[in-house]
Write a protein that binds this DNA or RNA. Structure first.
Length: 498
RNA sequence: GUCCCCUUCGUCUAGUGGUUAGGACGCCAGAUUUUCAUUCUGGAAACAGGGGUUCGACUCCCCUAGGGGAUGCCA
């Protein structure tokens, strides 16, 4: 054997590690990519705040893991599903900035597949036809309550011979739920929740008219869509037990469950249409920014230590299921408003003025064009510092587009005493002499005037503010002069003398 | 009724056996300021109650109370 150099094992190991690293990273990414979440609203109303948060959590979780976020419209209840609701939900999702992967799945369009599974269950003896009437069902419930048993269907057709079926009655198909033992939900938020099977009755999976119920279609669709993680409201927790039983009967693996606590109204009661259960569009109309909304909703039930201001990018990086709280939270407008103010102050001027323009046009009834838009954008710097919502932003931008002579509110009128008006005229003359008009040059003149008259700045600034804005509240008065420009400013000041 | 879940300042929450129980919103006081807002400083404010376990419980267990959810041919 020739002189082979000794093998350098250490180096070999390092080389190997280097070679393998990308493979491991690739695999890790592949595993992470396999996360599929979904938001599955029923189109019986708008996208309310609880649904929006559920959607947000699903979206965040999917984005966090480079997975997919799917949207499924659960429209199997033909009576109550409406196109308007579908429209509202889609619009709401878009406004919230929650984009879904692929096309929305309409559950009803998959009814044949659902029926197929129901029949499969039936053929396998894991489901059966039930001919019980509404009245019978009603009796069963009453009796169960009386006997202090778990309510529900008593299984009277479970083992009955189909030949006993009554004439002319279309049967429903019920799932043959195990009577013995218990079903355990391994929930990412709630922990292991055990429900005794005797609590769970044989529920309907296919209606008498042959259409599937939610209990069936949700399972089939989640399975077929490859959903790996179900994040949904707490109100589905008991359903989860039933669904796990069906997964088992079908020989399918149930997705990971994560039941998040519900959001309550400010009074601690369930969110209802009476108080707080508004569509997200209503929040838009109230002047909240979607980014503030996302931050607020995220923080409602999820935490990352003491962090409060969490951008969406940061949220995607941080979001997890472990830090979701277990108790229900109340909706607090004050906090949302505070957050909104913070996001407004940080927002881009153009972005804000685009939002403000239509609101202002609506408020004033004026036609606002490019000139006004430019004016608002120019003033936004000072405006956004004081605003809590797009609405208040528009309100405070009102003076910019108000026609001369300005309408004065009560406090402003009071400020414009005879002396003050005289003073303002002097100021107008001085301002008119200005060679260059901007916030700085104008400030110098106003301060000089105050000094010459032996007045504190406030004594001249407040009447000036009244003259210029018609109110007592505005951005810095020099900024106002600067933005309004020479002609408009002086015009408004001179108007007070009339 | 039955089953399941929850319980830290008014509200959202941090806290995983030893902390002066922290932060945020709101509230109060003060500072800054041409108004308002912002900003800054300070303050009041909580472990639902009762039993255990432990040298030691906000943290673990049990009970009670309160709250919520489910109990549909709704989802």
């Amino acid at each position: 054997m020739p002189n082979t150099p000794p093998i350098e094992y250490k180096r070999l190991g390092q080389t190997l590690a280097r070679r393998i690293k990308p493979l491991i990273e690739f695999l890790a990414k592949k595993i992470a990519m396999s996360v599929v979440t979904r938001f599955a609203p029923s189109p019986t109303g708008f996208l309310h705040i609880g649904g929006a948060r559920t959607a947000l959590f699903n979206w965040l979780y999917a984005r966090r893991h480079n997975g997919k976020f799917l949207l499924r419209i659960e429209d199997t209840d033909r009576e109550r599903s409406t196109d308007e609701a579908i429209e509202a939900i889609l619009k709401g999702m878009e406004w919230m900035g929650l984009d879904w992967d692929g096309d929305p799945v309409f559950q009803f369009s998959r009814r044949d597949r659902h029926k197929e599974i129901a029949e499969e269950l039936l053929a396998a003896g894991k489901a059966y036809k039930c001919y019980a009437s509404k009245e019978e069902l009603e009796e069963m419930r009453a009796k169960a309550r009386e006997e202090k048993r778990a309510p529900g269907y008593d299984g009277r057709w479970r083992d009955r011979d189909p030949s006993e079926a009554p004439e002319g009655v279309d049967p429903v198909i019920r799932f043959k739920s195990p009577n013995e033992g218990a079903t355990v939900i391994h929930d990412a938020v709630q922990g292991d929740v055990t429900i005794k099977n005797e609590q769970l009755d044989d529920f309907i999976i296919l209606r008498a008219d042959g259409t599937p119920t939610y209990m069936l279609s949700v399972i089939v669709d989640d399975h077929d869509m490859g959903v790996t993680d179900i994040i949904r409201g707490d109100d589905h927790l008991t359903n989860a037990a039933r669904q796990i039983q069906v997964y088992e009967a079908l020989g399918w693996t149930a997705p990971r469950m994560c039941h998040i606590p519900l959001i309550h109204g400010p009074d601690g009661a369930k969110l209802s249409k009476r108080h707080g259960a508004l569509g997200v569009e209503a929040y838009k109309d109230m002047g909240y920014l979607p980014e503030a909304m996302r931050n607020y909703l995220l923080r409602l039930g999820w935490s990352h230590g003491d962090d409060e201001i969490i951008s969406t990018e940061q949220a995607i990086e941080w979001f997890n299921l472990e830090n979701i709280g277990k108790s229900a939270a109340r909706f607090d407008f004050d906090k949302l408003e505070n957050l909104n103010g913070i996001y407004i102050r940080e927002a881009d001027d153009k972005y804000l003025s685009d939002l403000v323009l239509p609101v202002l046009a609506e408020k004033t009834g004026q036609d606002l064009g490019a000139d006004e838009a430019a004016l608002i954008e120019k003033a936004m710097y000072g405006l956004k510092e004081r605003a809590k919502s797009v609405i208040s932003l528009a309100e405070s931008a009102r003076f910019l587009v108000a026609p001369r002579p300005l309408e004065m509110d009560e406090k402003a009128k009071k400020l414009l005493s005879e002396d003050a008006v005289m003073l303002l005229q002097k100021l107008a003359d001085r301002l008119d002499d200005l060679a260059e008009w901007n916030a700085e040059t104008v400030e110098a003149v106003v301060r000089e005037t105050a000094e010459a008259e032996d007045l504190k700045l406030g004594k001249i600034a407040q009447p000036l503010r009244a003259a210029l804005t018609g109110t007592t509240v505005s951005p810095g008065i020099f900024d106002v002069l600067g933005v309004l420009g020479r002609e408009e400013s002086i015009g408004r000041i001179r108007d007070t003398a009339e």
